[in-house]
Design a binder for these strands. Sequence first.
DNA 1: CGGGAGTCCTGTGGGC
DNA 2: TGCCCACAGGACTCCC
Length: 272
Amino acid sequence: MPELPEVETIKRELAPHLKGEIIREVVIRRKEIVGFPKIQLFKQKVIGKRIKEVERRGKYLILRLSDGSRLIFHLKLSGRLFLIDGEESPKHERIRFLLNQRNLSFVEPRMFGRVFLVEGEVPRVLKGWRELGPEPLSRAFNQSFLREKLRGRKGKIKSLLLDQRIGCGIGNIYADESLFLARINPERTGGSLTQEEIVRLVRAIKKVLRKAIRHKGTTLSDYFRPDGKEGGFQSLLRVKDREGEPCLVCGELIQRIRIGNRSTHLCPRCQR
DNA sequence: CGGGAGTCCTGTGGGC
DNA sequence: TGCCCACAGGACTCCC
């Protein structure tokens, strides 16, 4: 599932190929993939524009176009962006952007992902965008920010980290990995965390995300880079997908539980 | 407003 | 081998 490190990797690997390219044509294979505006208008506004920058915000990937508008992608669970040379289109391709040299193909088997064209004001369908918290790798994401967000909260810390107003860009994999590194049990309520634990958690989140970016993301099943290759962080996971295997710190068996209808992995001895 | 449950969608994999 | 069904999950909606 593309989370912050995966989208950051995609951004870095797409940028050198997309910057300066002109979108010559758009082939829409499933109209629902375009979240905004309607497809006729979408095509009309995108065709002929030059891609000036490739950016990321949380789990969103952004192509900044020559007229100041933005193409905003959300890959959700199974979305992939591929750079393709020839005519052949991959299975489950939903939309394709024809450029000068290669083509950009948005593949999304499960049809949760969307692409939006945004000029100025962000449309209602992107309401989550406006409320995104600070980037976890920025200085604004610090202990005083997190303390403020967790104060008095009765929800479980795992669920709160998945709230994009708090853990912007964090998803199921990195929430579990960060809580393990911070030695905090995911079932603890947000408001129960001590100052010291909040400091540990902030540091753990930054450390895990940076390391995952260095290894080009985690491929468990659905995530692939624009050239089709896998990420490298899956072999470095400490709890995610390790149910029944020994904790690498204490040897206790890793457990899998459900929190907020999400599967959650933890070491019951290390995480208190 | 907060928190929990339900919903969307489709491929995959376990069970028989 | 083939069929069926549970399951996976980000973010939004709904309800209390």
